[in-house]
Design a protein around this nucleic acid. Structure first.
Length: 152
DNA sequence: GCGACAG
DNA sequence: ATCTTGTCGC
């Protein structure tokens, strides 16, 4: 599978670098899915078009984004309780939410993506986290990426 | 020119 | 992202 980056990493232009490779990879799977969990933002973007939204539009698949921190949006952290969440706003609009996936760990930023709502996003990330800060699918993907990188 | 803005 | 060091909880 072609794994060439589409360009250098530049804040706001992540989809230019990761988009081509990711869309090709998802298509290569040849399998259907209910929703794609993307390590990127949605409307929280300089042009309101983060990679989670971009990829979902290109593939025609629902997406939910989750990142360590917001790109431009801001919001106070929720209380330190599992499942607690607080809004992330950009120019007065709620574009995502902080979500405490695990007690004692800093919250993750959750972003509604292509054809998903804020509630959908929270539900998907909460269910996928299951006790860990990072959703299991993303931890698994990173694990596989490390192994692939170690080989050739 | 500098700062910072996903990864 | 990637790297290193230190701390905490299971």
């Amino acid at each position: 599978m072609g794994a060439e980056a589409g360009g250098p990493y530049l804040p706001g232009l992540l989809s230019l670098r990761e988009g081509p490779c990711l869309s090709a990879a998802v298509r290569a799977l040849g399998a259907s899915c209910d929703v794609l969990l993307i390590d990127a933002t949605g409307v929280d973007h300089p042009r309101l078009a983060g990679l989670a939204l971009h990829l979902g539009a290109v593939l025609g698949l629902p997406t939910v984004g989750v990142t360590h921190r917001p790109l431009l949006a801001q919001g106070a952290w929720p209380q330190d309780a599992r499942g607690a969440h607080s809004p992330l706003t950009l120019d007065g609009d709620v574009v995502g939410t902080w979500l405490r996936t695990r007690r004692g760990a800093r919250p993750v930023a959750v972003h509604p993506g292509w054809r998903t709502t804020l509630d959908d996003a929270i539900a998907v990330v909460s269910a996928a986290a299951s006790g860990h800060r990072t959703p299991e699918p993303l931890r698994h993907a990173r694990h596989l990426a490390r192994i692939a990188r170690a080989n050739g």
